[in-house]
């Protein structure tokens, strides 16, 4: 564990608390893509199946359980408690275009052709693109509540911090590198670049998040 990874994980935790706070205080999930949230549940369940057969640390297990539980809870809030505030008609990204290629990629690129390893690879590839329905929705509506942009920023920071973490580990752990996680991670972080540009130039200057028409 190094500082980059710890701060990255904390940023990931923060993003979930920001999202929960947004939903609870506005009593609405407006502006949040159900599809992206459902993809995150898929990602966490597929990857953290290893809770049953691999123990890393208490920190690792607690975080995994938290990510599974909180992502399922968010789906529940969107689907039941605040269902009337969820508008599927603007959440139109076709996720089969993400799921198909991720299944294919995980069958080709994995560390061992076994059920658990293919699922692990699948979760890594799927996580890298899971934010696309959310970004697509943002693009479509052209604006977002400030709190929603803080959620996305925290999520983007989490991904960005994993990059120096990998560099640090490469140097300190004798050339250790995970090509699947690093490639997918770079792609994932890249997806946030446009968002970050608007976030830093507008939201952090006190303006509303609005995309040029």
């Amino acid at each position: 564990m190094n500082l980059f990874r710890l701060l990255g994980d904390l940023s990931h935790l923060a993003s979930i608390f920001i999202l929960l706070h947004k939903i609870q205080t506005t009593r609405s999930c407006r502006g949040i893509s159900f599809k992206t949230q459902a993809l995150y549940v898929t990602v966490f369940v597929a990857r953290y199946l290893d809770l049953f057969y691999r123990y890393v640390s208490l920190y690792n297990s607690v975080m995994k359980l938290f990510f599974i539980a909180s992502s399922v809870y968010i789906l529940y809030l969107m689907k039941y408690k605040y269902r009337p505030t969820n508008d599927p008609s603007i959440d139109t990204f076709r996720i089969e275009y993400l799921l198909g290629p991720c299944v294919l990629l995980s069958l080709i690129f994995n560390y061992k052709f076994s059920v658990t390893e293919v699922l692990w690879s699948f979760s890594i590839f799927l996580e890298s693109v899971a934010i696309l329905p959310q970004l697509f929705m943002l693009q479509r509506t052209g604006e977002a509540e400030t709190i929603t942009t803080h959620y996305l920023a925290a999520l983007g920071v989490y991904r960005a911090l994993y990059i120096p973490n990998w560099i640090y580990r490469y140097i300190t752990e004798d050339g250790v590198v995970d090509p699947i996680a690093v490639t997918a991670g770079l792609v994932q972080t890249g997806l946030y670049i446009d968002f970050f540009y608007v976030y830093f130039t507008k939201v952090l200057q006190g303006q509303k998040f609005e995309l040029p028409a």
């Binding site: 990874r5 994980d9 990931h12 290893d50 691999r54 890393v56 640390s57 690792n60 975080m63 995994k64 990510f67 560390y111 061992k112 692990w120 994993y162 973490n165 580990r169 752990e173 050339g175 250790v176 590198v177 995970d178 699947i180 996680a181």
Partner: peptide
Amino acid sequence: GNGNGKKDEL
């Protein structure tokens, strides 16, 4: 190298 990936990360 670490062929099995960094399964200690989240």
